[in-house]
Amino acid sequence: MTGTKTHLTGERAPCGRLGDADRSQEDDFEGFRLDDMHYACGCRHMQHEFHDGSVRIRTVRHDGKILSDEHSGEHEA
């Protein structure tokens, strides 16, 4: 698995604040990918892609409130 970390400036957080952010990306080149943003204010945005092709996207505001939590892999049998 390979990964990178990038420091960004002037990014708009989910709460609307502008500031620094750190982006962490990992990939196993077999369908598993992580893309996480951690903002200076404490907000987070995560996108995880899994081997089965499903995707989970979650956004959490700096006070812990979940703004969105979506998962594409919920299938009915």
Rank of each mutant, 00 (worst) to 15 (best):
T2N: 15
G3F: 11
G3L: 06
G3S: 13
T4I: 15
T4L: 12
K5W: 05
K5P: 13
K5V: 13
H7I: 08
H7E: 15
L8M: 06
L8P: 00
L8E: 14
T9Q: 15
G10P: 02
G10R: 09
E11A: 03
E11F: 09
R12D: 11
R12Q: 06
R12H: 09
A13D: 01
A13S: 02
A13N: 05
A13L: 03
P14Q: 13
C15N: 14
C15Q: 04
C15H: 11
C15I: 06
G16K: 09
G16S: 09
R17D: 03
L18Y: 01
L18S: 03
L18I: 07
L18P: 01
G19E: 07
G19T: 02
D20F: 14
A21W: 14
D22E: 02
D22A: 06
R23T: 06
R23D: 00
R23H: 10
S24Y: 05
S24D: 08
Q25D: 08
E26Y: 10
E26K: 02
E26C: 07
D27N: 01
D27I: 02
D27G: 00
D28Q: 00
F29W: 07
F29L: 06
E30T: 00
E30K: 14
G31F: 00
F32C: 00
F32G: 00
F32R: 03
R33N: 02
R33M: 07
L34H: 05
L34M: 03
L34Y: 04
D35F: 09
M37N: 01
M37G: 13
M37E: 10
Y39W: 07
A40P: 04
A40L: 14
A40Q: 04
A40F: 11
A40W: 04
C41T: 01
C41G: 05
G42D: 01
G42C: 04
R44S: 07
R44G: 15
R44P: 06
H45Y: 03
H45I: 11
H45A: 03
M46V: 15
M46P: 10
Q47M: 09
Q47Y: 10
Q47E: 02
H48A: 02
F50R: 09
F50E: 10
F50Y: 10
H51K: 05
H51W: 00
H51S: 04
G53N: 06
G53K: 12
S54K: 08
V55F: 08
V55G: 13
V55H: 10
I57P: 08
I57A: 08
R58Y: 03
R58F: 01
T59A: 13
T59S: 01
T59N: 15
V60H: 03
V60C: 13
V60F: 07
V60L: 03
V60D: 11
R61M: 11
R61H: 12
R61K: 15
R61W: 08
H62V: 04
D63T: 05
K65R: 15
K65N: 12
K65F: 10
K65I: 10
I66E: 05
L67F: 02
L67S: 12
L67I: 14
S68D: 10
S68T: 15
D69A: 00
D69M: 09
D69G: 09
D69L: 15
E70V: 15
H71T: 12
S72M: 05
S72D: 00
G73W: 02
G73S: 04
G73T: 00
E74Y: 15
E76A: 08
E76F: 12
A77I: 14
A77C: 11
A77M: 14
